Simulated assay, not measured.
Amino acid sequence: MTPFGARLRALREQRGVKLADLASAVQVSSAYLSALEHGRRGRPSAGLVHQVNEFFGLIWDDAEELSRLARLSHPRVTLDTAGLSPEATEFANRLAATIRKLPPETIARLADALDAPP
């Protein structure tokens, strides 16, 4: 599941909106929305994010947060380490090989390290 997919599902559940009803309102298929929610499709377009924001009446910080999550929701990431140190390349490859096995608390610690000032 992607960050956008998780938030979209949470919004639907909080507001009692069926997948088919949201799909109809934003003029996409239920299968496409389901794939977005489950992380089987890439990040949604800015237009779709805008439509979802309008459907749920999200404004200001909530709308920006949904847009931010959409930008961070590509399920197949490509990382170019050309020109970086050998350690950076090794780290990227090790992370790619092991990310599915990492417990949530380890992922949270790595995310905290990325958010820390350099």
Rank of each mutant, 00 (worst) to 15 (best):
residue 15 R to E: 14
residue 16 G to A: 10
residue 16 G to F: 08
residue 17 V to F: 11
residue 17 V to W: 07
residue 19 L to Y: 00
residue 19 L to H: 00
residue 19 L to R: 13
residue 20 A to E: 14
residue 21 D to F: 00
residue 22 L to F: 02
residue 22 L to V: 04
residue 25 A to P: 07
residue 26 V to G: 03
residue 28 V to Q: 03
residue 29 S to Q: 11
residue 33 L to C: 11
residue 34 S to N: 13
residue 38 H to F: 01
residue 42 G to F: 03
residue 43 R to V: 00
residue 45 S to V: 04
residue 47 G to S: 12
residue 47 G to R: 05
residue 47 G to W: 00
residue 48 L to K: 08
residue 50 H to T: 14
residue 50 H to C: 01
residue 53 N to D: 13
residue 54 E to Q: 14
residue 54 E to K: 12
residue 54 E to I: 01
residue 56 F to R: 12
residue 56 F to K: 12
residue 57 G to C: 03
residue 58 L to Q: 04
residue 60 W to H: 14
residue 61 D to R: 02
residue 62 D to Q: 15
residue 64 E to A: 14
residue 65 E to W: 00
residue 67 S to H: 07
residue 67 S to D: 12
residue 69 L to R: 14
residue 74 H to Y: 08
residue 77 V to K: 13
residue 78 T to F: 13
residue 79 L to G: 06
residue 83 G to Q: 06
residue 83 G to T: 07
residue 84 L to A: 05
residue 84 L to E: 10
residue 84 L to M: 12
residue 86 P to C: 09
residue 88 A to S: 13
residue 90 E to A: 12
residue 90 E to C: 01
residue 93 N to M: 11
residue 94 R to V: 03
residue 96 A to E: 07
residue 97 A to N: 00
residue 98 T to M: 01
residue 98 T to I: 01
residue 98 T to W: 00
residue 98 T to E: 08
residue 101 K to M: 13
residue 101 K to A: 15
residue 101 K to D: 15
residue 102 L to K: 01
residue 102 L to V: 09
residue 102 L to W: 08
residue 102 L to H: 00
